[in-house]
Simulated scan of single mutants.
Amino acid sequence: MATRRGFLAGLAAAALVPRPTWADVGSPDFLAAAKMPEGDYALVGLTRDGREVFRLPLPDRGHAAAAHPSRAEAVAFARRPGTFAVVIDCQSGEVRARLDAAEGRHFYGHGAYSRDGRLLFTTENDYGANRGMVGVRDATAGYVQIDEFPTMGVGPHEIARMPGTDILVVGNGGIASHPDAGDVDLDIPAMKPNLAYFSEAGSVLEVVELEPGLRRDSIRHLALREDGLVAFAMQWHGDEGEPAPLLGLHRRGEDVRLLSAPGPMQAEMDGYAGSVAFSRDGSRVAISSPPGGQAQVWNADSGEWIGRLRLRDVCGLSAGPDGFTATTGTGLVVGFGGEAVLWDVAHQGAFDNHLVRLAADL
């Protein structure tokens, strides 16, 4: 770990070096990892209407990205159980830093910056001890790791920062993994997913578990509303039977609310929610399912079902100008509000799982 003196020296040095802002690179609204037709991988910047602003090479398949809150810099993470991430200058395409997981660790494909952009938090697996960890890195001094703390669970997937605060939330999926096993899920019978809240120093603020009958409903991805409402997408690893809920809503200090689609439409999701997002105005919440070929939408406050959009291999999901923006493995960027596509743009290549929204305060 770096010393505090080194950390402060890094802050001083970073203040002297001008860095490009997001406006300097065409003001993209989204970032997405993609596989190009030639078989190589890229990080793509997209506008709110689905146009490509930039395309930067990645060394391997990416999962999600973390976008710096002010400068045009993004961290692209390898898929679980990847052991690398790259920090990319989105103006020059230069790799500013490479993050390698420590011995006995791997990443989970997600990360989040502190509000001032000085720290990067990454979800990691200490697979020898079978415990989740959050790595803390100094974004002002080459992303050297300066701290870490446990996530209070196994298989932490996405980490996010509550809007306008210094509070972090982690979705602990409850599933063990190991680099030697690739993307094979391990120790399913012992699953115990939870949603955990922390201060940036790692103090535990709250841990919320699902009821025992849903212990195989893995909490994976997160969406945060401005007023503190957290939406989480799940993936079912239990027995066949009555379809399990794949969307949960939680506010600190309250009980979890679980939402399911009516009738047979819940089963059509095939037990898999790939991404989750609130609409731009926060009134609606949606989850996507690549195997189900659809995105489903609810009223975020009442929990009332709104409808679904059928779309082949849809997964990436974010707030958009018309409610939601989605990306697909067929190369489409789509705007929708409910059950109909409002606009779409076709791209060469295949988008990966996530569509990361850029904002002044992520």
Rank of each mutant, 00 (worst) to 15 (best):
M1D: 11
R4G: 04
A9Y: 02
V17Y: 00
R19D: 12
D24T: 03
P37E: 10
G39A: 12
D40C: 00
R55T: 09
L56G: 13
H68E: 13
A74G: 12
R80I: 02
F84M: 14
Q91R: 15
D100E: 15
F121H: 03
D126V: 03
G128P: 04
N130K: 06
Y143Q: 09
P150S: 05
P150T: 01
G155W: 08
R161W: 02
L168R: 01
A176T: 10
G182P: 14
M191E: 15
N194S: 15
L195N: 02
S203W: 04
V208L: 14
G213F: 00
G213R: 14
S218Y: 02
L224F: 06
L224V: 06
R225C: 00
E226T: 11
V230S: 10
V230M: 09
F232G: 06
D239I: 05
D239R: 12
G241Y: 04
P243Q: 14
G248I: 07
G248F: 12
H250D: 12
H250C: 12
R251E: 13
G263C: 01
Q266T: 09
D270L: 15
A286I: 01
I287N: 06
P291L: 01
A295C: 13
W305T: 05
G307W: 02
G320T: 04
D322G: 00
G323R: 10
A326N: 01
T328Y: 07
G329Q: 14
V334I: 11
A340F: 00
D344K: 15
F351D: 13
L358T: 05
A359N: 01
